[in-house]
Nucleic acid binder design. Structure first.
Length: 278
DNA sequence: ACTCGTGTTAGCTG
DNA sequence: TCAGCTAACACGAG
């Protein structure tokens, strides 16, 4: 289930395979995934255009779209198409010859054939291919002109000074702050556990307790965890993830991993190295 | 039958 | 108004 690295994989898939193909049909009938748009609204806004670029900030993607008639040079551009994969979303791009490429939610985990009923939003291209948001739980979202101002800087681009300022204000638990997309965009529940484990910081530590050296250690952990996850195409391969189970032990010191709820989310941490607040 | 969840967000409280 | 918390959303998996 997608966090920043998986979303980047999906964005790259769109950029490689879906741009420049004329949209001739849109299935926007799922009113929950496409809220607050009404059925047909996305179809009317997108039919006749092409996707011209694919961008990402944190876990939000958006595609620029062309004008309706660019035959005499670029006309007025169309709306941006916002795409969020939610908890279980995956981007599927189908070539004219039927070849299927997928990115986002790792397909191996549920090992089920793609059910057409779980295609929640589909663009049909003039070449006979398609692009779809495949999403079992329907927590993904399609929206025109997404509000990017609601997001903080992307986790891969935030600077150390920005990070210190954004992370330490207030008194909330540090894990909850890492998950706050309006402060730093892209960190999900698994990455947050991995980052805190690498930095040896207890997830429930109030951010007001973090000294500068703690914030800097957290920043270095963020960078290294993101680099590793991106290189491997996803967060699910990180060290501490395998230890996220009853009876799991810390891959570094061997102590028992503890489970609890922090910031309303399921959380695992090392009972020895992440026991006390700084 | 029942609980949980790799995400977001409306609505409440102080 | 802001920071922080909780429930709700939807539905498959264990």
């Amino acid at each position: 289930m997608p966090e920043l690295p998986e979303v980047e994989t999906a964005r790259h898939l769109i950029a490689d395979l879906a741009l420049g193909r004329r949209i001739v049909g849109v299935d926007d009938a799922d009113t929950f995934v496409c809220r607050p748009h009404s059925p047909g609204e996305l179809r009317d806004a997108l039919t006749g255009r092409t996707l011209t670029a694919a961008h990402r900030r944190g876990k939000t993607m958006w595609c620029e779209t062309s004008g309706l008639d660019d035959s005499a040079g670029p006309g007025p551009r169309g709306p941006d198409l916002g795409i969020h994969l939610g908890m279980s979303g995956r981007i599927v791009v189908i070539a004219p010859d039927g070849w299927v490429a997928e990115g986002g939610d790792p397909p191996g985990r549920d090992a089920q054939p793609r059910k057409a009923a779980w295609d929640r939003f589909t663009l049909e291209f003039a070449d006979g291919g398609r692009m779809a948001l495949f999403d079992k739980r329907r927590l993904g979202r399609i929206v025109l002109n997404p509000d990017l101002d609601a997001l903080g800087p992307d986790a891969e681009e935030v600077t150390p000074a920005q990070f210190r300022a954004l992370i330490t204000k207030g008194t909330i638990a540090v894990k909850a702050r890492l998950l706050d997309q309006s402060k730093i965009a892209g960190i999900g529940n698994l990455l947050a556990d991995e980052i805190l484990w690498q930095a040896k910081i207890a997830p429930a530590t109030p951010v007001s307790r973090l000294q500068r050296k703690d914030a800097d250690r957290l920043y270095r952990a963020l960078r290294s965890v993101l680099a590793a996850a991106t290189a491997q195409g996803g967060a699910h391969t990180d060290d501490v993830i395998a230890a996220r189970r009853p009876g799991g032990s810390c891959p570094r010191c061997g102590a028992e991993m503890v489970h609890g709820t922090v910031g309303g989310r399921s959380t695992w941490w090392c009972s020895r190295e992440q026991a006390a607040w700084p």
